[in-house]
Structures are given as structure tokens and as C-alpha cells.
Design a binder for these strands. Structure first.
Lengths: 342, 342
DNA sequence: CTGAAAGCGCTTACAG
DNA sequence: CTGAAAGCGCTTACAG
């Protein structure tokens, strides 16, 4: 019953750069250069090293590289949701922008929770990221402290700041909320309700835009607002439509803070026999694919989410390289999509 | 014009474990233990180290830990799409299952592309992951080679294999396709079309199930199949409805390989004045949220995507710990959701 | 263009 | 329960 003596070596058993170098008959630092800075090495050596890499099936150890070089080649992206098509489009833009470089993108889903954001950031900061892409402008004090202490370059997405010390890429959520409300007012609606869910930063700013436009038109009435913290879903939109009509039966238009709620509200109108837009106008926000296809098609605000991700990642990459940004705040705008539902 | 002499030290400037140890008056290996194996250290020391960590704002360097310990605490997840709600639900399940441990989840979006899968895997393997979660059973030979060479534990999601050497969590895509077709046949339909897009592994298996059911009922006809490699979207569903009706005008039911296509087909029917299901029955696959709310509500196949992610991650974690799996192939089943559209 | 040595910041046996 | 030393697999100045 003798115990197997475990080997003293802590080697992982994987092919190392040293093995590649030995096979190619060069020093390992030369092999390193042949791989990461091929131009600084003679063609013959480059060839030999490349061949050794293939023959041995060498896979570089990223942890070792990060430790030795102080460049992790990691970019952290924090989004509040992965089930929301808005943020998956943002991610697609980021991936496309970073595709060429061999960055490793660490995607964190904060689920609209400060606590989750703190936790994820704590874990991801251990990877010593070269840059961070954040959603939104407001974060918990702890997150702010962690970010400041890390000294990692940051670009914030979705909204625009007026703080010149920040970098932001997005559009004005406030202006967009204001513009949609103004559109409904111009159509002659007087009793325009606002339905908001999740109550994240962006929803609240759209609501602010709505309120301001209503005040300007002297149409403001707290009874026309319905705000709940639950996650936005089609089912919730259907439910909130009922609650809004119960709360303000004379409501003649409803501005839903996003398309999911608008879709649910419209489906519910169909079930109740309420004609949209004749009896009740309904509009949404974000222009999800279904909005153009539903019957009635949905009036909404088109948002440049793919471009936000793409431009934010491009900006972050240039900052990491030490370049000065052309502008700290890149406004990508929004588009009012007037369709059948309002 | 004298150049600044750069310091010889390559230290990152970040707070190190050594600094924490010094502050606490212990050796750094003791500090290490106090942090990662608190039980193996006296309460007094644990306290002192903890305090030093807080005072200094110590953030462990994950690269150093990975290099020294051979445990990266990284789990790689490869999904073919992030815009498909099916896979975001899978991811949610994975995240929930791995929440307690401090795993870092590396999410790779292969975009249904073998080349992209190879590229991502190549990059992610450099991080020496402790485990890999894959979507689907079929991969390119290169990917298979890379996976085999890496010797990293793997669990495959979405479908079931019959290879006892693999670990899979999902349900039979073939059976589900067969069951939905059988449902339509039992409803009395004779000319049942199949619309498939993307043509990924799962779509092809659903199509196989459809074909077999049609053959069994002696209803098979190649003219009833319409398969295109484009990504599934609502817009494509609308277009394919037209092409299917042009190709087989006597079609009395259409099985769409997923809900996006079904939604588009239904919206298009509404625009053309085709009554669903009276003139044409339409059904989908996956039971996306809108399917229960649309008018008509959509008959579809409910799939346990969240659970697939959750169970697959749980299984992978247990394998990483060296435990033997209860079963190599976990069948989570599917549910036929009979609604109004078919 | 190429290489010997040191070091990045941790953890692992091992000893006491 | 605690510690001195070695080592994980790379890259970085520096020298030639």
C-alpha cells in the first residue's frame, strides 16, 4: 500500500515556449520574439520557430504572458442584461471593433444590480484588464472607488456625460424621451401616459424627457405616469396597459419606455378590442425587429446600439494606445420611427 | 534633452501579496493561505491579514495565481449567437450555476461559424481553462483536435449524443421535430411545409425529425421543404412564407424551425389576409416570450434552455472536481405548446 | 539580429 | 499553525 510519490515538478505538462525554442535551436527569448514581434527576427529563424510551434502544437500561456508583460490583453465589458437585445447588439459592435487585435473580451452581466456589478468588477479587476467598457453613467460609490483605484481606462456607453474627465459614447436618453413625447403632443394627444419598468438610469432619463415635454405643453399629470421596478417583459406590458387604463381611463396615448412593454400593451389591446392607434396610440423605444413587422407596426425610437458598441470599443482601444480622443463625448443620436401604432 | 531613465523594476505598481504580508507581519505564503484557505490559519493571523488587505486595497493578480497554481478558474462557454434568446437563457443558467464559486466565465460568440469557433477556441485555450461548455455536437476537425490536445473537461449542450465518451445535456432535436410534425399530422394536415434557416446542426436535426414523420405518414414531398442558410429573423420568416406558398400553393400548415421565422410568417399572413390557422396553420420552435402573447398565439415547442445551461454547468463543475457523472447524457426533454396558430 | 539573466506575483511541497 | 525557497511560463531591458 505504498503511496505514489508525486513528482516534485509543478510543470503543467503543456508544451512550453522553452520546448519550442529547443526544437528550433534558439533561445526562448528569441522564440518569444519570433512569435510576437516577427519583424524583429530573421526570416530563417522565424521559419524554424514557426515550424516548431506547429509540430509541437504550442499554445501560449496567457497567464504567464500577462504576468511578465503587464499587458493582459483583456477588455472587460459590463452590461446590465444579456436577454435585452439592445445590449447583445452593443456586444456585437464591440466584438467586431476588437476583432483584429487578439483581445480577450470579458463579458459581465450585472443584471441591473449594483451588488452584482461590484462583485463582477472585483473578479474582473483581478485580471488586470487593459480597458473597461461600462454601461451607463451612474454606479455605486464602491464601484467608483474600485474603478478609480484600478487606474484602468474606461469608456461609458449608452448615454452622454457632460463631465470632460469621462469618456462616453451614446445619445441623450433625455432628449429621446422628450422627442417622442413631443411627437405624440404634435399628433394632438392630450392625455399621454408614460409606462416605465426596471427603472434603470436610462428609463428614468426618458421619463424625465417625457415630463419636461408634458410640462412645456401644460399637459403634465402625475396620474399619467406608471412606474414599476420589475424587469421589462411583454407580459408586464400587457399588465401595465390594464393598470394604466384603470388609473387614467381617458388616456389617449401611451409612451412605453421600451419596445417589449409596447408590444405587450398592443397585444393586450387586441385582446380587449381596443383599436390601436384609433382609440389608443402606443409607442415604444429601441426599435426591436418585431416593431417593424407587427400589425400595427410600432412607432418607436431607433437607437444606434451596434454603433455605440463599435465606437466605444474603438475609442477605448485608441485610449489604451495612448492616443488622445477626438472628443470625450460621442453623440450618435437617435431616430424617431413613425409607424402605424402612434 | 536628457531622456528620462526608465526604472529597472518591472513592478506593476499595484499592491502585491508581499506588501500585504509585510503590513500584517507575516510571510507572504501565510498571507496567501489566510486569503485562500482561511481555515488553515489561526484566527488572529487571519484577522491581521484581512485588515492589511482592506487597508491596502489589495486586489489579487489572477495571472500570477493561475501561473503558480495551474488552476485558472476560467470556464469557457462557446455559443453560436448572443442575439438568439435561446442562448442568452442558456448563459443565464450557466451564470447562476457557477455563481457561488469565483469562476471567470469566458463567453465566446461563434456566430454559427466554424472559422470563428476555431479562432475563439485558440485564444481561450491560452487561458488554460478548467472546463469548456460547448453548443452542439458537431465541430470542425481542427476544433476537435484542439479540444483533444487540451485535455480540458468538456460538456456539450443542446442536443444528446450516444457516444459514452462525451458528456451532453439537452434534449433530442430530432424527436422534437418529429413530435411537432406528428402533432400537425394528427390535426389532419396533409400538405405540411417545413421552413428552415441558418441550417445549423439543430435545425437540420429538426428537419430530419420532420422528414421521418412525413414519411411515416406517407406525406413526404420535397416541394414542401424550404431551407436557406441565412440567419433566422422575423423579416426572413415573412419572406419565406411567400416563397413557400409560391412553391407549394396547396400547403395547409407550415412548421418553422424556430419562433422568429414563425412570427414573421404570421405577420406576413396578416398582411396578406391569410387567416391563421383557418387557412394556414403555422407553428414554431423554442417558445420565445412573444409566442404566448401574439394574436393568434403561437403553437411551438418549449425548450428547457435555462435548465440546459444550469445543468451543464453543474455537471462540468462536478467533473472538474473529479466526481463521476451520474449519467453522461442528461435528457431534459421538451414540451409541445399547443396554442392558437396551429 | 540574437541571447543569458532576472523578474512578474503568486502557490506548492516540504520542513519545523 | 507558520515560513524559506523554488518554481509556474513567459517578457523585458541590456549587452553583444
Amino acid at each position: 500500500m505504498s503511496k505514489t510519490v508525486s513528482p516534485k515538478s509543478r510543470a503543467s505538462g503543456r508544451v512550453t515556449l522553452a520546448a519550442v525554442a529547443e526544437r528550433a535551436g534558439v533561445a526562448s527569448m528569441t522564440a518569444s520574439r519570433a512569435i510576437s514581434q516577427p519583424d524583429m527576427v530573421s526570416a530563417a529563424l522565424r521559419e524554424r520557430v514557426q515550424q516548431a510551434v506547429e509540430e509541437l502544437g504550442y499554445v501560449p500561456n496567457r497567464a504567464a504572458r500577462a504576468l511578465a508583460s503587464a499587458h493582459s490583453k483583456v477588455i472587460v465589458v459590463l452590461v446590465p442584461s444579456l436577454s435585452n437585445a439592445v445590449f447583445t447588439a452593443v456586444l456585437a459592435g464591440i466584438q467586431d471593433a476588437l476583432d483584429a487585435d487578439d483581445y480577450q473580451i470579458l463579458i459581465g452581466n450585472t443584471r441591473y444590480s449594483d451588488a452584482e456589478e461590484e462583485k463582477l468588477l472585483g473578479i474582473y479587476l483581478q485580471s488586470n484588464p487593459d480597458g473597461i467598457l461600462l454601461s451607463g453613467l451612474s454606479h455605486s460609490p464602491r464601484v467608483e472607488r474600485m474603478l478609480a483605484a484600478s487606474r484602468v481606462p474606461i469608456v461609458s456607453m449608452m448615454d452622454l456625460s457632460d463631465d470632460p474627465a469621462q469618456l462616453t459614447v451614446g445619445f441623450s436618453q433625455f432628449q429621446a424621451g422628450h422627442a417622442m413625447t413631443r411627437y405624440l403632443i404634435d399628433k394632438g394627444h392630450k392625455r399621454i401616459g408614460f409606462i416605465g419598468a426596471q427603472l434603470d438610469e436610462r428609463t428614468l432619463k426618458r421619463a424625465d424627457g417625457y415630463r419636461q415635454a408634458m410640462r412645456e405643453a401644460e399637459l403634465a399629470d402625475p396620474k399619467l405616469e406608471l412606474m414599476v421596478p420589475d424587469p421589462s417583459t411583454i407580459a408586464l406590458g400587457a399588465e401595465l396597459l390594464g393598470r394604466m387604463l384603470a388609473q387614467s381611463p381617458d388616456c389617449d396615448a401611451i409612451f412605453c419606455c421600451n419596445d417589449d412593454l409596447a408590444h405587450g400593451a398592443i397585444y393586450q389591446c387586441q385582446r380587449r378590442g381596443i383599436a390601436v392607434p384609433r382609440q389608443l396610440a402606443i409607442c415604444g423605444f429601441n426599435d426591436l425587429p418585431a416593431s417593424a413587422w407587427m400589425n400595427p407596426s410600432v412607432t418607436t425610437v431607433g437607437t444606434p446600439r451596434y454603433r455605440i458598441g463599435h465606437e466605444a470599443a474603438t475609442l477605448l482601444r485608441s485610449v489604451i494606445r495612448g492616443e488622445a480622443p477626438a472628443t470625450p463625448h460621442l453623440d450618435l443620436g437617435f431616430t424617431l420611427m413613425a409607424r402605424e401604432s402612434a
